[in-house]
Amino acid sequence: MGKTYRIKDIAEMSGVSTGTVDRILHNRGKVSEEAQKKVEKVLKEIDYHPNLIARSLALKKNYHFITLIPSFAKGEYWDKLCEGIDKAEQELFSYNVEVERMCFNQYDKSSFDELIPRIEEADCQGVVIATPFRDSVIKLASRLDQLQIPYVLI
């Protein structure tokens, strides 16, 4: 794995201020064409890629995900899936990730359909969907596409 470069390192290598590098990396404000070229040259030389985890921590952004799975009893099939979701949530807790669980009756399509408006109104960054209801999930997926909310089907 390559070296991690800080804004300060890039500024020194480019011969510009840290503020200039910050403005270029985050598209904040105007910089001279000369400074832009110097920084871009260094970024290319070091094959710079932003640290998205550090950026998300610095922004203190909260990430809200929804899981839509059938209700279950301990030991049933969906219990294992829920254990995985719980583990992921614990591992991502420091990155301000929150998971909201929505459950429905896997034998009652209307219980799934009743959750669709709640998901549409939720301010979330992604949805995990596990359902046998084909028509309903197509409707939900279409709506999530319109809202530009990513989703995954299980």
Rank of each mutant, 00 (worst) to 15 (best):
I138K: 09
E121K: 12
W78C: 01
G84P: 08
A122E: 03
K74F: 13
A141W: 03
D86I: 10
A58H: 11
K74D: 12
I66D: 01
Y107G: 07
E100L: 14
A141R: 04
N62K: 15
E76C: 08
C103V: 14
V127E: 00
N105S: 14
I69G: 01
R101P: 02
E120I: 12
R134H: 15
R143D: 06
G84S: 15
L59R: 12
V97W: 05
Q90I: 14
N105L: 14
T67V: 09
N51F: 09
K139G: 02
E100R: 14
C103D: 06
R143Y: 10
F93K: 15
S111M: 09
F112M: 03
P132W: 15
K80F: 11
Y107K: 07
L52T: 06
N62D: 13
A58E: 10
K74C: 05
R143I: 11
Y107I: 06
G75W: 11
S71K: 15
V137H: 02
K80G: 08
V97E: 06
L140G: 00
N96T: 05
D113I: 04
R55F: 03
L115T: 02
G126N: 03
C124K: 00
V137A: 05
K109Y: 09
Q90E: 15
Y77I: 05
A141N: 03
N105G: 10
I129D: 00
C103L: 15
I119N: 00
K61E: 08
H64A: 09
R101Y: 12
S142N: 12
I116W: 03
K61A: 08
F72H: 02
Q106N: 15
L59N: 01
G75N: 12
L140P: 00
F72K: 03
K61Y: 11
K61D: 05
R143C: 04
V137E: 04
V127N: 00
V137I: 10
V128R: 01
G84N: 15
S94F: 10
A58V: 05
S71Y: 14
F65C: 01
E76G: 05
L115P: 02
A130I: 07
H64R: 07
K74E: 14
I53F: 07
E89K: 13
Y77N: 07
L57M: 08
A141S: 13
I138R: 13
I66A: 01
A54W: 10
E98I: 09
Y95T: 09
Q90N: 13
I66Y: 00
Y63V: 01
T131E: 04
Q106S: 10
